[in-house]
């Protein structure tokens, strides 16, 4: 029998490179939301630590590293990205598969904050928003998760259905920033 083929929502739309800035998709690996039950926050964090070596992050932060990361994504909720979770965690927290709910973009290059300043009201000044910091906010009109992964790189999670709009918005902002840079 034929197998069902997986398809990325940004197939054919990325990568984009404009004036040294790149927009790529960061994989289709597992993403699981973790929401510890009442009074189980510490136990969930411990189980997570035992499982993937990273604890539950505090608000606006992430733990772990590329490959197995835990990103704070809201009140009492984090997402485990790039690693599988199991029943040892499920007894302390509601686990929900979110692997297909999001498209994760990686925007990288010098002046990445200038592009994002056109798209989000977040304060991403390097002195304020540092590597490992995470935030929930908006990209244009879309709800988004922002994660700073390197001095010049962010990962931005957007709902899958809006992937095309997100690429469109990124592209306009990237081009505008490039056109400004060409002025001086």
């Amino acid at each position: 029998m034929v197998k069902l083929l997986a398809k990325s929502p940004v197939e054919g739309l990325v990568p984009l490179e404009i004036n040294g800035l790149t927009l790529t998709e960061s994989g289709l690996g597992p993403v699981t939301s973790v929401a510890p039950y009442a009074g189980q926050e510490a136990a969930a964090s411990g189980a997570l630590k035992a499982l993937i070596g990273a604890e539950m992050p505090s608000p606006n932060r992430s733990t772990g590293r590329e490959g197995a990361r835990v990103i704070w994504t809201g009140a009492g909720q984090a997402m485990v990205v790039g690693a599988d979770v199991d029943a040892s965690l499920a007894q302390h927290a509601a686990l929900t598969d979110q692997s297909d709910a999001w498209v994760t973009f990686r925007l990288q290059g010098q002046g990445v904050e200038d592009v994002l300043a056109r798209l989000t009201p977040l304060d991403l000044n390097p002195g304020v928003f540092k590597t490992g910091h995470a935030a929930r906010s908006q990209l244009g009109h879309m709800n988004a998760v922002f994660l700073k992964v390197a001095a010049d790189a962010f990962e931005i999670m957007i709902f899958r259905s809006m992937a095309r709009t997100a690429v469109h918005e990124f592209e306009i902002a990237m081009k505008a920033v490039a056109a400004r840079a060409a002025l001086s």
């Binding site: 608000p59 606006n60 009140a75 009201p121 929930r136 906010s137 908006q138």
Partner: peptide
């Protein structure tokens, strides 16, 4: 209290 100082458009 969780996210910090934010623009009103988020609320």
């Amino acid at each position: 209290p969780l996210c910090g100082d934010r623009d009103s458009r988020e609320f």
